[in-house]
Design a protein around this nucleic acid. Structure first.
Lengths: 222, 222
DNA sequence: ACCTGAACACCGTTCAAGT
DNA sequence: ACCTGAACACCGTTCAAGT
């Protein structure tokens, strides 16, 4: 029996939670949420499906770990220069960019809002409220409103990615959505106007605009 | 063989999409998202699993139909009295209350943001922006920011409901989440303060506070 | 036209057995 | 201590066969 080609590749290093999480992220990034199964993962790791369970409790824990990994790294790199307002904007944008790069993390953030990754985002946007002059009693609502807005964006982003995964073009995909909105029997006037703007809008600009509105609202409290 | 007790109950009327959707909503409300399977649904409808596929294309369509049903009814009942500001608040609260009553709809709204139910919410909050004096060019960002915030709330609500489904007490559940936040090795100061407020906070008040902040931000544009 | 229910392909998870 | 992989319970969906 000849030496099989993948023999040298496997068992390079032992299985570990880090290696499992890293491989899971690779699959999620490259092939999307639906592609991450324990079978696919164990094949890629050249091991049995059950082996993974020695390192992670279940799929939920695995997904929380991947999300935590990606979000933690992103929040750590967010700039805190330029005053409290700038720091909050930077934190929100860091979260946005992480989700833009890893849309599957958006699904997971919304799915389990008590996971560590959420706390990193909350901390990053919340710490600077003091500096902004927001009174203590208003900081809970102020920070969770920002967080909720970020989570809403995360969910839509992930949904869009699932929808587009087979699609060629972004504008084309959004146009077909807008088309669907307009073709329906019960189109309402405001939705029709918005549908027209849907294909060409910029997600990042839209996100920033929302953050600015909320920051204006927060400023009005203090 | 004696007449089985459920015999008179079944086949009362023929299968229809309406009846399937209504039964699905019953299951979702009573037993949660995980309990809605085609097997459970077909058992409840006293039919074969495949029969449902004659009336709905697949599970996604079924879930979109249930969500649409529940949200459409809620938005229809939202008051439009008291000026544009009050109408927007009423629309947002109508969405909130619908999700509060049917948390599974929150999961579905976030999962497919292009579905009809989303358009109803967007229309309800968007039509009154003209009356608020928001310039046309700013209405896209203004309305989608509100929508995104509502979706973020929807997702968290649904997640909380999945988490609590076996739990006795709401305060107890939130306390255990806050506990988990505080016990962790890397607790950060702001998150610790928020954790302390988590168990006793009121979801509806929190939601309204967020809507007010965004409305303040929107008002600043005009 | 509408319904039946066995069958298919595929999951996450478990666990006796190996090293 | 760590890994293997068959087996289990359970999905959504299909489809030949019935009425």
């Amino acid at each position: 029996m000849p030496t099989s080609p993948q023999r040298s590749a496997r068992r390079k290093d032992a299985l570990s939670k880090e290696r499992i999480v890293a491989t899971a992220i690779e699959i999620l990034d490259a092939e999307g949420e639906a592609a991450l199964t324990f079978r696919a993962l164990s094949t890629r790791l050249a091991t049995g499906a059950g082996a993974i369970y020695w390192h992670v409790a279940n799929k939920d824990e695995l997904l929380a770990a991947t999300t935590n990994d990606v979000i933690t790294r992103a929040m750590k790199n967010a700039s805190v220069d330029g005053g409290p307002g700038a720091a909050i904007r930077a934190a929100a944008l860091a979260a946005f960019d992480a989700i833009d790069a890893h849309p599957w993390a958006g699904t997971q953030l919304v799915r389990e809002p008590w996971q560590p990754a959420i706390r990193h985002i909350l901390e990053a946007v919340g710490t600077h409220l003091d500096g902004l002059g927001v009174p203590k009693h208003a900081q809970f609502n102020a920070s969770t409103t920002l967080l909720t807005y970020i989570l809403g964006t995360a969910g839509q982003y992930a949904a869009g990615m699932r929808f587009m995964h087979q699609q060629t073009d972004r504008v084309e995909a959004l146009t077909s959505v807008a088309q669907g909105w307009s073709d329906d029997g019960d189109v309402t006037p405001f939705v029709r106007e918005m549908a027209a703007q849907l294909p060409e809008h910029d997600d990042r600009e839209q996100f920033i605009a929302g953050v600015e509105m909320i920051l204006t609202g927060i400023a009005a409290i203090s």
